[in-house]
Amino acid sequence: MLELDTILAPFLEHEYPELSDVLQRDFQRVLNCSDLELYRCLLRAETPSDLSLQSILGVIREKHQARHSS
């Protein structure tokens, strides 16, 4: 899904290297989510089915919004 690529690719390139080990593992787990669930969580701010991913999804949303609010 193109919308997800425009969020996740820049995050991976710019933010991922600076994440803690825990958040890096969580990001890797996010990549196993379905496109539909990621779309709902990242673009609609819905709660993920795996609640342990809320933190990384919040970080991804925040970084994406910060890149586009400048």
Rank of each mutant, 00 (worst) to 15 (best):
L53D: 04
R44T: 04
V22L: 14
S69E: 11
I7N: 07
M1H: 08
S69T: 10
L51E: 15
G58V: 06
L19I: 08
P48Q: 07
K63F: 08
E15W: 02
D5A: 12
S52I: 00
R44A: 09
T6I: 12
I56E: 02
Q24K: 15
P10C: 08
L57G: 03
A45V: 01
Q54Y: 01
L4T: 05
E62R: 12
E15S: 10
L57W: 07
L8K: 10
L12G: 01
D21E: 14
S70F: 04
V22T: 15
Q28S: 07
L42G: 03
F11R: 01
L36F: 13
S49T: 11
G58Y: 09
G58A: 10
Q65H: 13
Y16N: 01
I56H: 03
R40A: 07
F11H: 04
L2A: 04
H68G: 01
Q54L: 11
Q24V: 01
L42K: 02
Q65A: 15
S34T: 15
I56D: 02
N32I: 00
Y39Q: 09
R29P: 00
H14Y: 13
T6W: 05
Q54P: 00
D26R: 09
E3I: 11
R25Y: 10
F11Q: 01
L43H: 06
H14G: 00
L38V: 03
S20E: 11
